[in-house]
């Protein structure tokens, strides 16, 4: 009985989830050593998991995405309820009836937080998507479009990075009449430069690779090469950029709303809730800031998890982990 087979037994035991056969394998090992066979040292073994890693990652991805979608949808449905105020219930600490407490006007904070998260997810997703697409297009054009295009885009990128972007964001939001679209487009138009730089560098690298030269020699068109070689190569960078931009966008939305250049005060949004809570913190209404803040953190983490998982699944270098 070879060691290899021992391991195979443990393997099948794992797959079947059968503890009895796992035990049988270790009993065999013990017998062997008793018979005077020298047992091999185990130098390394893959981590033992009941669910394998790839499946687990897929599951995490799916669950996080589902929770995000659920929050966004429930939030939209709750929007009218979140606007209702009931002064008789005002300023209540967290209880069974109002788990997140109520604010000065008697809004239920749980409902208002979920509705606020929904707005924030909307703005965050929209801004991050638009911004990353701008970055993708400009980065690719800079890398593939010749020297002049590259010079223009690099100059624009440097210019954008040179201006403190909160100032720029305020200007755009103000010019577009504030509100949802002002904030979303403001964030979208100010956050592309750093990702654009990364994508430009990445595309340049792929462009100079031997396999692109081979594809050209095999008669493939530039469009084919862009779709089959360049795009998959920049996808991981793009995804990371998108993930990192999402929390950034939400926090900026909160920031400019807090400064009064963002969403109107009656609209439930995390930024509004947090900025309002500031004036009540000093009178001990801690729940106004703590729960919505934690909820925001949770959403950002969920998005991060989904993105990281997707990246792991797409990367062949880590396919066997």
């Amino acid at each position: 009985m070879s060691r290899k087979h021992l391991f195979a037994n443990e393997e099948s035991a794992l797959h079947e989830g059968n503890d009895a056969s796992l035990q049988a394998a270790s009993v065999q090992a013990a017998t062997l050593s008793a018979q005077g066979f020298e047992l091999p040292t185990v130098f390394h073994r893959p981590a033992v998991r009941r669910f394998n890693n790839r499946r687990q990652t897929k599951l995490i991805c799916l669950v996080s995405a589902a929770i995000l979608v659920a929050i966004a949808l429930i939030g939209v449905l709750l929007m009218p309820v979140a606007m209702e105020s009931d002064l008789s219930q005002a300023r209540q600490a967290p209880s069974f009836e109002h788990p997140f407490g109520t604010d000065n006007l008697g809004h239920d904070m749980l409902i208002r937080t979920v509705a606020g998260l929904s707005t924030s997810i909307g703005i965050g997703l929209f801004a991050a998507l638009v911004s990353s697409i701008i970055a993708l297009i400009l980065g690719t054009v800079a890398a593939l479009g010749g020297k002049k295009a590259d010079a223009c885009i690099t100059w624009l990128t440097d210019l954008m990075l040179g201006i403190p972007h909160i100032v720029f964001l305020l200007l755009i939001s103000y010019a577009l009449g504030k509100g949802f679209w002002g904030v979303a487009l403001g964030v979208a138009f100010t956050h592309w430069p750093s990702l654009c730089r990364v994508i430009r560098a990445e595309v340049l690298q792929v462009k100079q690779s031997s396999y692109v030269a081979v594809a050209r020699s095999l008669g493939r068109s530039p469009l084919y090469i862009a779709l089959h070689h360049v795009l998959p190569a920049v996808l991981p960078q793009y995804l990371v950029g998108l993930i990192l931009m999402f929390p950034h966008a939400i926090l900026h939305e909160a920031a400019i709303t807090f400064l009064g250049f963002g969403l109107p005060p009656e609209q439930p949004a995390i930024g509004i809730i947090l900025s309002e809570s500031m004036s009540y913190l000093s009178v001990g209404m801690w729940w106004l800031a703590v729960f919505p803040g934690l909820a925001l953190l949770l959403v950002v983490l969920l998005f991060d998890r989904a993105g990281q998982g997707l990246r792991r699944l797409l990367d062949p270098a880590r396919a066997q982990e």
């Binding site: 060691r3 391991f7 020298e38 091999p40 040292t41 185990v42 130098f43 390394h44 073994r45 893959p46 981590a47 066997q320 982990e321």
Partner: peptide
């Protein structure tokens, strides 16, 4: 002693 995460290495050295 350089092992990838998904390798299994056993024997006597």
């Amino acid at each position: 002693g350089l092992y990838d995460t998904n390798t299994c290495v056993e024997g006597v050295i």
